[in-house]
């Protein structure tokens, strides 16, 4: 089952989980493309934050797979590695084109959600996750409920309103994003009536 929500430095590899990570991606990209580090302060700061977190976890050396890709994309990646030795260059190009077109599909694009706790509820670590644009907001609520092991979680966008569970996450992000992140505050009780 492909993963739906991705957090930034989670390390578990449960395929059925709706969470996955992109920590390895950032480190890998930074390693392969040093020019990215100097592109903006934000990117640099985030990379530093990631490497600090990784060094705390002792996982920096393991971060080699682009975990932003879902499981099917990962299998394509592995397949591509094998093809390097077994198949012709034209076939590799076809796979790359297919991968690219898949990434360019709007519904397959992923957006970032920043989770902010309200009150005494536990803080989510990491606080930033990725989710496919085509998912309903109910998926975000479900993720929070599972992560926090709670029966009820009250979610708000931009500390303001509660969207309906049926609303599309991609449309919410487009309308209410702040610095390319959808800010979702969560609470164990009603916070904004």
């Amino acid at each position: 089952m492909s993963r739906i929500l991705e957090s930034e430095n989670e390390t578990e590899s449960d395929e059925s989980s709706i969470i996955s990570t992109n920590n390895g991606t950032a480190t890998e990209r930074a390693r392969n493309h040093p020019e990215l580090k100097s592109s903006t302060h934000t990117v640099q700061n985030r990379l530093e934050l990631f490497s600090r977190r990784l060094s705390q976890l002792g996982l920096a050396s393991d971060a080699s797979v682009d975990q932003q890709l879902d499981s099917s994309a990962s299998s394509t990646y592995e397949q591509k590695e094998v093809n390097k030795t077994n198949t012709s260059t034209s076939e590799q190009k076809n796979i790359a084109t297919e991968q690219k077109s898949r990434k360019e599909e709007p519904d397959a694009q992923k957006i970032q959600i920043k989770f902010q706790p309200i009150g005494s509820i536990a803080q989510l670590k990491p606080s930033v996750c990725k989710i496919s644009m085509s998912q309903p907001f109910a998926m975000v609520i479900l993720f929070l409920k599972r992560r926090l092991k709670m029966d009820y979680v009250y979610c708000y966008i931009n500390n303001s309103f509660a969207p309906t569970p049926q609303q599309n996450v991609g449309e919410l992000w487009t309308q209410f994003k702040v610095s390319d992140e959808l800010i979702v505050s969560y609470c164990a009780s009603v916070a904004f009536g």
């Binding site: 966008i157 931009n158 303001s160 309103f161 509660a162 969207p163 309906t164 309308q175 209410f176 904004f192 009536g193």
Partner: peptide, 23 residues
């Protein structure tokens, strides 16, 4: 009523960029 009020807060945000109007 609660649901409707949150709908209006969302509408206010879309129209004005914040929910201050209704809040």
């Amino acid at each position: 009523e609660k649901f409707w009020f949150h709908q209006w807060k969302q509408v206010c945000f879309i129209l004005n960029g914040s929910s201050k109007g209704i809040m």
